[in-house]
Design a protein around this nucleic acid. Structure first.
Lengths: 161, 161
DNA sequence: TATTGTTATACTCTATAACTATA
DNA sequence: TATAGTTATAGAGTATAACAATA
């Protein structure tokens, strides 16, 4: 990981090595992990990644307004809107108007949606467990904390431009 | 991180929590890191991610055949082909036929391409360094090894389907 | 005037495969 | 028959913004 940052060379030949560049490595890792997991929700159950995230969010939370699904699942409001529209067509979720706020719609899984969720979850958890078996418990803890800190730093970089 | 894997509940309510699900977390992290880095190569220098990777590969390697750029930069041959075509139009790379293999074309940066590379690299390294400042040296080492192992496991999951 | 959610549009990316030229 | 690389095409995903309804 370009971790040592030994800038032996000056601007004319900076110490840059793509395969060790952290942003590259995390992109490749995430892409491969996503492929491995999407074999479950996409290939076997024909859900897009956004649709799977919405199902997962509702599986964890029972009832949510669309505006809360976005922040919970790292999707923007259009991705949520489109995913929710398709999931409703497929009979996997239902929407009812919120009495408290006429603009909002409360979204929840139908029984079919919950059954789907319950089928997918064990398969994805098994794959996650297989991935994490590569690590010792203390390594997992360090990884988890590292990811939280890196995410916070990435977000502060994005903010400042 | 769904790391503890305490499956207290049975299939009817598996211990699934999207925000702690490792594949979700690594996807979100990679996306945010990519946004933070693409502010450099995309917003300031108008390169797509694939184009930046090709420039970076050639910055690290001087001369490469297209077939070697793909594996080096985690791009498929079409992504390489398109990126290379645009970079050539922009005068950032050049292609010459390989005398040893009439099918292959040897690709290298032009002086303009190398100048661009040398401008981008310090900026991306600075952002990488900022991200990694969040971690102690030993944490970086553990993270680096963890990423290698997780990648290998993800690839073996993909292979077996 | 701001927020919730949908729709429209254009653009980019991706995936598959057909195609050429060489080997 | 296989490989290096390009091109074609269609589908999926993305970004921006306009829009309607409600607050």
């Amino acid at each position: 990981m370009g971790l040592t940052m030994t800038r032996a060379a000056a601007a004319s030949a900076p110490d840059f090595d793509l395969p060790r560049f952290f942003p590259y490595r995390v992109a490749v890792l995430a892409e491969r992990v996503s492929q491995a997991i999407s074999q479950v929700y996409l290939d076997r159950f024909d859900l897009s990644r956004a649709e799977w995230r919405v199902v997962a969010a509702l599986g964890c939370n029972e009832k949510m307004a669309a505006k809360d699904i976005g922040p919970y699942s790292a999707l923007d409001k259009m991705q949520v809107s489109r995913a929710v529209a398709r999931l409703e067509q497929e009979g996997l979720i239902r929407r009812v108007g919120d009495k408290a706020d006429g603009r909002a719609k409360i979204i929840s899984l139908t029984p079919a949606g919950r059954t789907l969720y319950q089928r997918i979850v064990p398969l994805t958890l098994a794959r996650e467990a297989y991935l994490l078996e590569a690590l010792e418990p203390n390594e997992r803890e360090i990884l988890s904390r590292a990811m939280d800190r890196l995410l916070a730093r990435a977000e502060s970089l994005i903010e400042r431009g």
